[in-house]
Design a protein around this nucleic acid. Structure first.
Length: 584
DNA sequence: TCAATCGTTACACTT
DNA sequence: AAGTGTCCACGATTGA
């Protein structure tokens, strides 16, 4: 046993912290993924069973047997614990080690706050530090400022010669790209992480651009269509998924939104992910060298909304506060709206002074379907509970038609009834509310009252009117999908006419469910937690038309949508690792 | 009343 | 095969 057994020094703790941070902080950096082999990697014997003829390495030493390797590891860890003065009961003592390390991080955090006026929180990096993994003690100090580019990660480490600080700002956390400017396709590709770019990317994207332009203009009407239910049911029955070419990795990260190009001749599925990536997948142009996916990065934070407004323009909106319009003809992601803080340099911007900083982001954006045109108008809800309508129809008359405070908490969705007057909102305040937008006024300060309301009991993921407006569909954390008939005609409380039990507990790492209508028909679709994994399709009465399952459907499709065609039936689903499935 | 923390969920990636 | 990362979604609980 070492003589230092009872020593409890910060330097010793710092060694541990530093050792861990050296190994792990490099791993985090995504920009230099191809470099740096970490010595820590030798910790694990690659999952081999004891007894297999394999050499084991640990801290540069070679061991012949698994048992020797394990013993060496255990001994080293015990040594570390003794050095910390933490005795033999490692699991208990480890928690105190963490406390000490955490307090050091917090101190550093507070100092940083003074310097940079940032909000600090210290968090433990590894949530599975236990038992003999004491060597993994490491702390990150996050400076979260989600609306600017200030989120940096500071790994706190103290060496013997004094204090040392490592700072990384991964590309992911950089703020908005080309603030206030349009992005060309080339720029949007260059903003991808290098691993997603090939020499061909730009050329392929340009060919794709031409392909889209050569498509026939699609039927733009957004009105509900009348197709007999028997036809619809038959088409849904005929949907097929068992083709492995109909699933592809479209974005690098968790999908927050999916969209389907309106063309009836060319199937183009699209998805927006957590990192601001937008992937467009030309489903039938898969070749040996290329899977037909074109990846761009017009945003820096989750892409919460994507919607094609014509054959050659698509709106994308993001938590980063920007709304962009992909103009296929010009090949640009044009910034059509952005929120700004109160800095006077943004005084001229339409979104000036909307951004409240910390804890404020654009949660939901919907295209205003009353207007057709090159500049779509949008409804937008925010994490602060405000809802606004931004009229972008004519460039010199752009304005915010209204900006109202509808809730104390985040609003998850907005939906305008086809009559153009009633707006449905739902969010973390546990209610679904219907508002008369004629009463909003542009700058009204008086408290607004909804014309009708429904208390869910848990938060509301989404509330959408059907294409013809007769039904309101909600997805809630009460584990229900609920349908309200003629909700827009009610004047006090509304009650669901149909309530479907539906597990909506997607947890932390999966995007929440939102049941969405077909753009023109009275049917809707939702992902599901059921096993085997499936996508569920319902009619407007809430009858399940089909639980679509298949070999290609191996994970939870958090966000789904229908192809807008009334002739062809197709469903696009996106999961939480960037994979998109097309069912047709 | 608010802030901080943790549990939950499922998948992908690494070793 | 096992381990680990995921980092503001939501709800519950605790502490200030």
């Amino acid at each position: 046993m070492p003589a230092t057994r009872n020593r409890r020094t910060r330097a010793a703790l710092a060694d541990v912290v530093e050792a861990a941070s050296n190994g792990r902080s490099q791993k985090r950096s995504k920009t230099d993924m191809n470099e740096h082999k970490e010595p820590e990697n030798m910790d694990d014997p690659a999952g081999d069973e004891p007894g297999t003829p394999q050499l084991y390495y640990f801290e540069g030493v070679e061991y012949d047997t698994y048992q020797e390797f394990v013993d060496a590891k255990r001994e080293r860890n015990q040594q570390k614990m003794f050095d910390l003065g933490l005795g033999e009961n490692s699991s208990l003592k480890l928690s105190s080690a963490l406390k000490i390390a955490k307090s050091a991080a917090t101190q550093r955090g507070l100092q940083r706050k003074k310097e940079k006026n940032a909000e600090p929180t210290a968090r433990r990096r590894s949530s599975r530090v236990s038992g003999d993994k004491a060597n993994l003690v490491a702390l990150d100090y996050y400076v979260p400022n989600w609306n600017t580019d200030n989120k940096s990660i500071v790994t706190v480490a103290e060496g013997e010669g004094g204090e040392e600080e490592k700072e990384e700002t991964p590309a992911f956390f950089k703020g908005r790209v080309n603030h206030g400017e349009d992005l060309t396709l080339e720029q949007a590709i260059e903003l991808n992480e290098p691993k997603w770019i090939t020499d061909e990317s730009l050329k392929l994207a340009q060919d794709f651009q031409k392909d889209i332009m050569s498509l026939e203009e699609t039927n733009k009407t957004r009105k509900a269509a009348s197709v007999s239910m028997t036809t619809v049911e038959k088409r849904i029955k005929d949907l097929s998924i068992d083709n492995e070419e109909w699933i592809a990795k479209v974005t690098p990260d968790r999908i927050y939104s999916v969209a389907c190009h309106p063309s009836e001749t060319k199937m183009i599925a699209g998805a927006g992910d957590k990192g601001g990536y937008v992937g467009l997948w030309d489903v039938d142009s898969r070749s040996e060298s290329n899977n037909g996916v074109h990846l761009f990065r017009p945003h820096s934070r989750p892409v919460c909304c994507m919607d094609w407004v014509s054959k050659d323009s698509m709106v994308s909106a993001s938590y980063d506060g920007t709304v962009r319009l992909l103009n296929v003809e010009k090949g640009t992601f044009q910034e059509i709206f952005a929120t700004y803080n109160g800095d006077s340099e943004y005084l001229e911007e339409l979104g000036y002074n909307l951004d409240e900083g910390y804890n404020y982001w654009t949660q939901f954006v919907a295209v205003d379907k009353r207007y057709q045109g090159s500049n779509p108008s949008i409804f937008m809800s925010t994490s602060a509970g405000t809802a606004m309508h931004i009229d972008l129809r004519v460039s010199d008359k752009q304005r915010i038609s209204f900006n109202v405070d509808l809730s104390a908490k985040k609003i998850n969705s907005l939906s305008l009834h086809p009559d153009g007057n009633i707006l449905a909102s739902g969010g973390l305040d546990n209610t679904v509310n219907l508002w008369d937008i004629r009463k909003f006024g542009s700058n009204s300060k008086k408290a607004l009252k909804p014309i009708a309301s429904y208390s869910v009991g848990r938060s509301v993921n989404s509330a959408f009117f059907s294409p013809d407006g007769t039904s309101l569909l909600t997805t809630t954390m009460m584990d229900k999908l609920e349908i309200f008939d003629n909700a827009h005609l009610k004047t006090s409380t509304i009650k669901p006419t149909k309530s479907i039990r539906h597990n909506n507990q997607t947890g932390r790492w999966l995007t929440t469910f939102m049941a969405v209508w077909h753009p023109k028909l009275d049917i809707f679709v939702s992902g599901s937690m059921n096993k085997p994994r499936c996508i569920e399709s319902f009619d407007s009465k809430g009858n399940c038309l089909r639980e679509i399952t298949g070999d290609a459907l191996g994970s939870v499709m958090s966000r789904c949508c229908y192809h807008p065609s009334t002739e062809k039936m197709a469903i696009v689903g996106g999961n939480s690792s960037g994979r998109v499935v097309v069912i047709r």
